[in-house]
């Protein structure tokens, strides 16, 4: 009887040690996989998407008297406006809304705004506000593009236009 009991205890110990062994092996494999396979998060280079982060609105939130903000438009991946400013200190603010209409959480990977400083008018100034770094499914965020006629610009500019190009890259979180 004692021998049988010992054998049972022995068997239990062995099973326990084998379980611990397999558990440790599994933990290591899980860790290895998590470091070795950082699969991408593939989004695209612009505000888009099928997966599905997109521009859902652009509106004029403020315009100085006498200015013409035009009718801004947008597609899923781009927003366009044409601001006409008349005199120094004139200002128009456009608000662009980006929404995550997909089922996947997104995170902001990259934001670059560039203006054509070389060929564009030095009297036109652009400012942009910041927006959400993370965009969970269904959430939306907005940012403002502020266009200003430089109040220090006293000589009428020879070039009267200036473009701004923004690349906003969201990727799957």
């Amino acid at each position: 009887m004692k021998g049988v009991k010992n054998m049972r205890q022995n068997k239990k110990k062995i099973l326990l040690s084998l379980s611990i062994f397999l558990f440790l092996l599994l933990i290591m494999a899980v860790g290895y996989a998590s470091f070795a396979t950082q699969l991408r998060l593939s989004g695209s280079a612009e505000i888009i998407g099928a997966w599905d982060v997109r521009i859902t609105n652009i509106e004029v939130v403020q315009a100085s008297e006498g200015t013409n903000p035009g009718t801004p438009s947008f597609t899923n991946t781009s927003a366009t406006f044409n601001a006409q400013l008349v005199k120094p200190k004139d200002e128009i603010i456009y608000r662009v809304t980006i929404q995550n209409l997909g089922s996947i959480n997104a995170k902001l990977e990259n934001v670059v705004f560039q203006t054509d400083e070389k060929t564009g008018s030095s009297a036109i100034l652009y400012q942009t506000t910041s927006f959400a770094n993370k965009l969970k499914a269904g959430e939306k965020t907005s940012f403002d593009v502020i266009v200003t006629y430089d109040e220090n610009s006293k000589i009428p500019p020879t070039t009267k236009s200036k473009t701004i190009t923004g690349i906003i890259e969201y990727v799957q979180e």
Binding site: A29, T37, S42
Partner: peptide, 25 residues
Amino acid sequence: ATIFTSFMLGIFRYEPLAILSNSMY
């Protein structure tokens, strides 16, 4: 354990990868 570890290490012709994104959904 030996086969599993070798498989994880990519010693065989077949190798596993965990998927972090939904880009291929």
